[in-house]
Design a protein around this nucleic acid. Structure first.
Lengths: 208, 208, 208, 208
DNA sequence: GATGAATGAGGTTTCATTCAT
DNA sequence: CATGAATGAAACCTCATTCAT
């Protein structure tokens, strides 16, 4: 047909690609399948992206960019450590349900064998969060707002571990199954309850 | 060379296969490569296993079986919730360093697109742990050993989230990078420190 | 940018195309690459030429036309067979160094698999030269200027074989390497010497 | 079918490949086409050869090996320069008719864009012949068997140029057409005549 | 029962050609 | 009339699986 791609179609490529990579991993995804589902020819994908890996990276970049926005919302919301946690949990629940494919794609890059594994991906993704949480905890600890006998970096790490698992538990199939096994089949609809419990868990951890 | 396979060789198949799948994922792993590294022919793999997927499942089963033994050690060690946590953390640190490929393989099955995803894998793997932790927490809570105002299932879930991430952080490349970013380049050699901090975190969470 | 192509541009297409075909052969050359290097769009190439093959043929035609001019110079220079040979060798050396791509392109059409192979290309290219040389030799032979016991057509053929190889040896990579292997690394800078030797060789051959 | 390849089939691969490469060049030849014509699957070709280039090189090596045998026959046949020329011409005529694909393949490697172009192919192929001819001519010249006022290396070069063109003229389509144009439509069947004429040409050249 | 060469579908990528702008 | 993005056939190569030995 040789009609120029509509914005819809170019967006579609990235969206479908993200979904496919998120669901089937890098090796498991076929460019031809993406093209087919996006309603474009194989050729255009190579016009826009240098190759499969480049497309994967573009998906990851888009995904991480979107996720970062969420973090920024929480970061700038000010307040105490626990107030930030409250915002983060709420946002995690909302975001993971609205954009599960982004979380799943993020999960894919943590897997050995992902092309992302070759570069300093973790550094790029995790550094900012790490410093943010650590700083929050450190200053709260110094101010006496939370217990003083802890290592801020380690506590930031444990806190983010909980957040990361929360994301996965709302977005990735295996983690969703596991979530239900632990907390009941309807847990994915009980966001307020989970937030409340997690706040207690984290609150206790921080206050000793 | 038509000698029956030695036990060494049949073991080797499963061991090498687990390593390959753990490192390169299901789609990224080639049967021929496993056969080559295991010193057997491609044909025997198909004699012992129905196909690639079957071999993958066998690796997972073996891996999970081994991991379960560790859990049983902790389970039967008796004591309080925190005493069990202490044992579990110690074992997690030891096991993840000695058998990182098992952890990495476990991580692979949590990925969308893994063949394991098709079946009720989570049910098989997570159920027992879930009931164990929940029971522990519930009875401790009822006895007043830990705070009463919590949901045992949710707390068991958060607790296991921390344990799962601990395993990954000692075994999987991306998580290891992230661990270092949060806690310093030498954190993988500071097991006692991490255990101490995690015990404080969990202790605080449980005691409110 | 919908300006008509300048003459510069249309010339450029043919020149660049000739270079590309000469260096990479017909199958190895990409239309897009020609367009890019010539600073025009792919589309115009298809406006001016029916397809890749047509463009190739146009390059060949241009190339041969230019080469023919050289021959005409020699032809009209009159004189004896050896005087003509002298002019031809000098011109071959000059032309092959100034326009190696034309020689290389000519070489390409001698290759099986070149599109030129399908038509009566040899007839078009070689006939005139063949008749010219044969006539020269025949009349020289009849006049007793050169030996009488030869077949003019065959000798014309051998003579042109030497001329053809001389062209290739100054223009095509493989033949240049071979030239150096036979005559020394600096032979490509010793035109006078080569001409002198070749004149002796041909002179001897003709005079018996 | 999974039956082991017969020797016929493995030979066939190389033979067909040589023909295809000889006729269509490197880029113009498709592995699938070779496989099809040889009656084997695509996969086996990659079992025996690392890739298209490797297969091409194998064809070239086989081709050159066979051609070298012919040269050795002539080389060891002793005698004077002209006696050797006699043998070489006879062999060239016979060989080029019996194995035209080898000559055509040799011709392909002289083309720009051939994979062989990347390496020191000319050195490997031409060196021995160059030294052989030069030695012959030099000693003949010193003995006074042929003219003394020539450069042996240059004359060896011209001599081989004639031999090379003779090969091509009996094997490659374009050169065969050209041969007929110069010497008549039935020239390819007049081997004795051509040998006789070429001997006169060379003889004259050498004797001055 | 083990072997590993053979198969061939399927994946990635290229590129000649078309045609809407 | 030029443009160059889009098309899709076709190329190279891999690898899960089979089966003759």
């Amino acid at each position: 047909m040789l009609k120029p791609l509509t914005k819809e179609q170019t967006d579609s490529i990235l969206r479908i690609a993200a979904e496919e990579f998120a669901d089937k991993g890098f090796s498991g995804t076929a460019i031809g399948s993406i093209a087919g589902k996006a309603g474009v020819s194989v050729g255009v994908i190579y016009k826009y992206y240098a190759g499969k890996e480049d497309l994967f990276n573009a998906c990851v970049a888009k995904s991480l960019g979107t996720m970062e926005e969420v973090l920024n919302t929480a970061k700038t919301s000010g307040g105490s450590m626990l107030e930030m946690a409250d915002v983060l949990i709420t946002e995690a629940q909302r975001f993971a349900k609205e954009n599960p494919e982004y979380i799943r794609l993020y999960h894919q890059i943590t897997v050995s064998g992902s092309p992302a594994g070759k570069t300093q991906t973790a550094e790029l993704i995790e550094s900012e969060t790490a410093r943010l949480y650590e700083g929050f905890i450190k200053s709260a600890s110094e101010k006496g707002a939370i217990r003083r006998d802890i290592d801020p970096a380690a506590f930031a790490f444990f806190f983010d571990n909980l957040m990361m698992m929360l994301h996965f538990s709302y977005a990735c199939d295996y983690y969703k199954d596991r979530f239900r096994i632990y907390c009941g089949d309807d847990v994915l609809d009980k966001d307020a309850f989970i937030k409340e419990q997690l706040m207690k868990f984290i609150g206790g951890a921080l206050n000793g």
